[in-house]
Simulated scan of single mutants.
Amino acid sequence: MTATWLRRVYFTIVALFLAAPLIVVAGVSVNSRQELSFPPVGFSLAWYAQIFTDPEWRLALIHSVTLAVCSAAIAVAVALPLAWFLWRRIAPWANIFQVLGLAPFILPPVITALGFLSFWATAGLFGLFFTAIISHAIFFVTLPLVTLSLGFASIDPSLVEAAATMGADDRTVLKTVVLPLILPYLVSGYAFAFVLSLNEYIVAYMTIGFTTETLPIKIFNALRYGYTPTMASVSVFFVAVAALVFGSIARFGDIRRLLGAMSSDGS
């Protein structure tokens, strides 16, 4: 009984410690006055409205959403055939492609961002919006690659064998058997890439930071001229979007499998 009570107290303290920064930021975001103070002075949601009504913040939001939607789609489009190939063609040399797919996310973000900066500057395309989309797609391709690889690994081989026995070719097997089974993993991979792209600063700044503002870039640029609670509102907005997306994955997807747990019948 004592051990259980101590464990609950410990985890409560840890949870409060982790939640404390978010509580402070959320409190600051509802200040009625334009100042950095906690507990908040008064209560106002005007700073949240400013994200959508102020032309500069609204444009930054549009840029961020466009970047996240497009880059996540490209990342999934690259990861899907690669994961399919790694699943169907088991060979030692095939692991090279898996390493290449994981490399952008393993390297320090600054190193990867400097690589993108050098490449696009050499190509004479630095500052163009599509370069950030491609860079984010490469940077975050690891996420859908991992989720899709887990999805392919969860497929019962007997289902594929049965389809092949009935005369289905690889394309038919992919469309009628494989894709319906890995759809939750595909959606999860897209969601992970979308959320992280929406929040990413370093790669975006290194590719388009001097020509186009996303929300993270807008926050850092705005800090040069002082502080407004709008910055805190954007931070809470990011957290809310992430919670909504990941909560949906936990509700409708196989979150235990995505976290690496084996199924009850697998070992």
Rank of each mutant, 00 (worst) to 15 (best):
G124R: 08
L102E: 10
W93F: 12
A83K: 09
V99P: 03
S71W: 03
R88V: 02
F119Y: 13
A137C: 09
V99I: 15
F85W: 13
F140S: 06
L114C: 08
L107A: 15
A91V: 05
S158K: 12
V146H: 06
I90R: 15
I111F: 11
A77W: 03
G151T: 06
G127L: 10
P157D: 05
S118T: 14
F97Y: 14
C70L: 15
L148I: 08
A137Y: 01
W87D: 14
R88A: 12
S118I: 09
P144N: 04
S149F: 05
L145E: 01
A164P: 02
T122G: 14
G151M: 00
L159K: 13
T131Y: 04
I133S: 07
P157M: 04
I138C: 04
T142D: 10
W87V: 00
I138N: 03
G124K: 07
T147V: 06
V69M: 02
H136E: 09
L117H: 14
H136P: 01
T122V: 09
L143W: 08
T112Y: 04
W93G: 03
S149H: 04
P108C: 04
P104E: 05
A121T: 13
P81R: 05
A79W: 00
F105P: 02
F116W: 11
V160E: 15
G167P: 06
V141H: 02
G127V: 09
A91T: 11
R89P: 06
P81M: 02
A162V: 12
